[in-house]
Simulated scan of single mutants.
Amino acid sequence: MSGVPVQVLPAGEHAVLVEAPGLAEVLALAVAVRAAVARGGAPWSGVTDVVPAARTLLLVGDRLDPAPVADAVRTLAAVVHADASTPTDGDLVEVPVRYDGPDLDDVARLTGLTAGEVVAAHTGTPWRVAFGGFAPGFAYLVGGDPRLRVPRRDTPRPSVPAGSVGLAGEFSGVYPRASPGGWRLVGTTDVVLWDAEREPPALLRPGGLVRFVAVDG
């Protein structure tokens, strides 16, 4: 498919909010916008941050002029290809996981796979960091094995331990800290997702890739 239909709205004096039909379109447009910003030149030189979400893309910057940036986004969106082959624009991060999660057997039952096949599917395909949300360091990961799409739990847990690796819908993710949550937990990791003393603090950033690696408990 060629071209992404968008609605571009001003968001204050120095930001632009782009509304797109879905996540695939947002991710494709984010790659194109980041590439344009990296090349520089007007009006992209005023953009300092590109923030994707499930259906929107926020462009911000202290020197961003909303009107010309909005026009540039519309022009760029008209030639963007939003499909599964959209390239990534970040690093690959390997996350070691002990597949000892309390919902592993439930995921196997829901998908018709064995527990071992769930692990193989989760580790067999790189996941893409789509966007962050709900807690510092949490990343919504997409693009994994489609057989792993499972619903959230009917009853969320009041507390999910930090490092828990979960599945929900089309997403996978790692809880950066203890918090309530309704995702299906398949494993745990010791990787630190958020460290305020690290630069940048978030280990997983939009546009990058994540590969889960099974390790012994």
Rank of each mutant, 00 (worst) to 15 (best):
Glu199Phe: 11
Gly137Pro: 02
Pro176His: 11
Tyr175Thr: 06
Gly112Leu: 06
Arg109Gly: 14
Thr123Arg: 11
Glu170Ser: 12
Val118Met: 11
Gly133Leu: 10
Phe171Met: 10
Arg128Gln: 11
Val150Pro: 13
Gly132Glu: 14
Thr111Glu: 05
Pro156Lys: 04
Glu199Val: 15
Pro161Lys: 04
Tyr175Gly: 09
Ala120Gly: 15
Ala196Lys: 15
Gly124Cys: 07
Leu113Thr: 03
Ala196Gly: 15
Glu117Ser: 03
Gly163Tyr: 14
Gly124Ile: 10
Ala135Asn: 10
Arg184Asp: 05
Ala135Lys: 10
Gly169His: 08
Thr123Leu: 05
Thr125Lys: 14
Thr111Phe: 01
His122Pro: 11
Val192Cys: 07
Arg153Glu: 11
Leu110Ser: 14
Gly163Lys: 02
Val150Asp: 11
Gly137Tyr: 08
Ala168Gln: 06
Val191Tyr: 00
Ala139Ile: 02
Glu197Phe: 10
Arg157Thr: 00
Ser179Asn: 09
Pro156Asp: 04
Pro146His: 07
Thr155Val: 15
Val191Cys: 05
Glu199Thr: 15
Pro200Asp: 01
Thr123Gly: 02
Gly144Phe: 00
Pro146Lys: 12
Arg177Phe: 12
Leu113Pro: 00
Val160Cys: 02
Val165Trp: 05
Val174Leu: 03
Trp194Ala: 04
Pro161Cys: 01
Asp190Ser: 15
Thr114Gly: 15
Gly181Met: 04
Gly137Gln: 07
Gly166Pro: 05
Pro176Gly: 07
Trp194Val: 00
Val129Gln: 00
Val129Tyr: 01
Asp190His: 13
Tyr140Ala: 02
Arg149Asp: 14
Trp183Ser: 07
Gly116Pro: 06
Leu148Ile: 11
Arg198Ile: 04
Ala130Gln: 03
Leu185Arg: 10
Thr188Phe: 15
Arg109Met: 08
Ala120Ile: 09
His122Val: 09
Arg128Leu: 03
Arg147Asn: 10
Gly182Ala: 07
Pro201Gly: 13
Val192Thr: 15
Pro201Phe: 05
Gly133Asp: 06
Thr114Trp: 03
Gly137Asp: 05
Arg157Tyr: 01
Tyr175Asp: 06
Arg153Gln: 12
Thr114Ile: 03
Pro156Phe: 13
Leu141Tyr: 00
